[in-house]
């Protein structure tokens, strides 16, 4: 069988399988609802209490503050010893190099496969001098996904270049975990070929939820509070290394994490490298209860 024809069969079968699975998921959800209306199931509180008693599993974050017991969820963010201050904070996410490697691998894997089908389709098209519209139509969504992956790889590459230019940005703090009302020293330094200008250092609070409203789960993040650290004296902001004092406002919320909801705190470093290219990085910390 020629490539595009069996490709069409495979693609159609794949779509049918995906559609079938989605339908089955909906059907199972509906049947579960019917069963729930007819059967008595354990109340969610009952097995969660069992988890407190040690009969089950609770939120599986191994590191908690000592006063976050009883199923509470105040994650203790890990820090390293700093060079200037007591605690060096870690990045909030994977390094741009890791992100680039991952997305490049994904884009290459996907596009090589889709590209081979495209190439066969193109050959068939030329040889037969007839249009294979069905095969082209089936391939179209795979091509769109491939293009999106390429765009994501380009974005990751730009981010990696910016990160390499900025070099290693280190954020250190004198007190950790922070607490509402506490005053701490903050130190920011940079080792990179392109100096950060327009520096803005902030203490930020971020809410993060797993949105389950649609067909798929999506992670939604929003910065809900931002407190400037230091006072930018000029348009280019303070010079690096930067040192300032921050007093955490009283009345702020502590860090919180649960399977679908989280409140996290970080020191956000913003600036520009090479004059205009924006740089932004979050360095996680724990806001403990008072």
């Amino acid at each position: 069988m020629n490539g595009p024809v069996w490709l069409a069969v495979v693609a159609l079968a794949s779509l049918a399988v995906v559609g079938f699975l989605l339908l089955m998921g909906k059907l199972l959800k509906f049947l579960r609802g019917v069963r729930d209306r007819r059967m008595i199931r354990p109340a969610p509180e009952s097995y969660l209490r069992a988890a407190v008693d040690g009969a089950g599993e609770g939120p599986d974050d191994p590191e908690r503050l000592p006063d976050g017991s009883d199923g509470s969820v105040v994650p203790l963010v890990e820090t390293r010893p700093g060079k200037v201050l007591a605690h060096a904070l870690k990045r909030d996410e994977l390094s741009p190099g890791c992100q680039l490697g991952f997305i490049l691998g994904m884009a290459a894997f996907w596009n090589v496969i889709v590209g081979s089908f495209l190439f066969q389709l193109w050959q068939q098209w030329n040889a037969a001098a007839a249009a294979h519209w069905l095969a082209a139509l089936i391939l179209a969504p795979f091509v769109v996904i491939g293009l999106r992956l390429i765009l994501a790889a380009v974005a990751a590459l730009v981010r990696w270049i910016i990160d390499r230019s900025a070099g290693r940005v280190a954020v250190e703090i004198s007190v950790h975990p922070l607490r509402p009302g506490v005053t701490a020293q903050v130190y920011v330094a940079q080792t990179g070929p392109a100096p950060l200008v327009g520096l803005i250092v902030e203490l930020v609070c971020i809410e993060e939820v797993t949105d389950t409203a649609g067909m798929r789960e999506a992670l939604v993040r929003e910065t809900v509070a931002s407190y400037p650290i230091g006072d930018p004296a000029t348009n280019d902001g303070p010079a690096l290394p930067f040192s300032a004092t921050v007093t955490v406002p009283t009345g702020v919320m502590h860090s919180f994490t649960a399977p679908n909801n989280a409140i996290s705190w970080a020191i956000r470093v913003r600036g520009r490298v090479h004059g205009q290219i924006p740089y932004c990085e979050d360095f996680s910390l724990t806001m403990a209860p008072e």
Partner: peptide
């Protein structure tokens, strides 16, 4: 509560 899935923890049952 909110747009995320509900998290729940019982301290007494």
């Amino acid at each position: 509560s909110g747009q995320a899935g509900e998290d729940l923890w019982a301290i007494d049952y």
